[in-house]
């Protein structure tokens, strides 16, 4: 169970191998990777920067992860979120959950990314031909997170 916030890129293959290494109770691994797109709201995006609130980020991500552990029988989980300056195609976030069976692994992964998107204090700023702009929060993200409250 681990949460990391870092400027550096991550190696998806190595992270997943490390996550499951030595634990043969794991039968399924759910993974979500978020990447920087080169278009948003119909406008070209040439770069992105990510700001966060370090002490609160750690606390929120740890709480979200603890909630996932309480809901699903997970053998391992990992959240890595990058901050700083990113380019289209770059990795932003990795969420992975391992369990004995696929349903818990996939559901817990979806839960973690849905909650992270609405609770973890990160803010994206995009560079576009019209200038830099802060990304607006989306109502669809709130709806995605709300489905786990039922």
């Amino acid at each position: 169970m681990a949460v990391r916030v870092q400027e550096a890129d991550f190696d998806i293959g190595r992270e997943l191998a490390d996550l499951t290494a030595g634990n043969h109770a794991i039968g399924g691994l759910g993974v979500f990777v978020g990447l920087v797109r080169d278009i948003a709201g119909g406008e070209a995006v040439s770069a992105m920067s990510l700001e966060h609130y370090p002490s609160m980020t750690e606390r929120q991500l740890a709480e979200i992860e603890a909630e996932a552990l309480a809901r699903w029988p997970l053998e391992a989980s990992l959240i890595i979120h990058r901050v700083g300056d990113l380019m289209p195609g770059d990795n932003i976030v990795l969420v992975a959950c391992a369990s004995a069976h696929r349903q818990a692994a996939l559901d817990a992964t979806a839960f973690l990314i849905d909650w992270l998107k609405t609770k973890a204090p990160f803010w994206k700023r995009e560079e576009t031909p019209e200038g830099a702009r802060w990304v607006d929060a989306r109502e669809s993200d709130d709806a995605a997170a709300a489905r786990w409250s039922k």
Binding site: I92, V93, W123
Partner: peptide, 12 residues
């Protein structure tokens, strides 16, 4: 207290 003010979050 440490009090923070910010727009709705947009990470992930």
């Amino acid at each position: 207290d440490e009090i923070a003010f910010f727009p709705p979050v947009t990470g992930g």
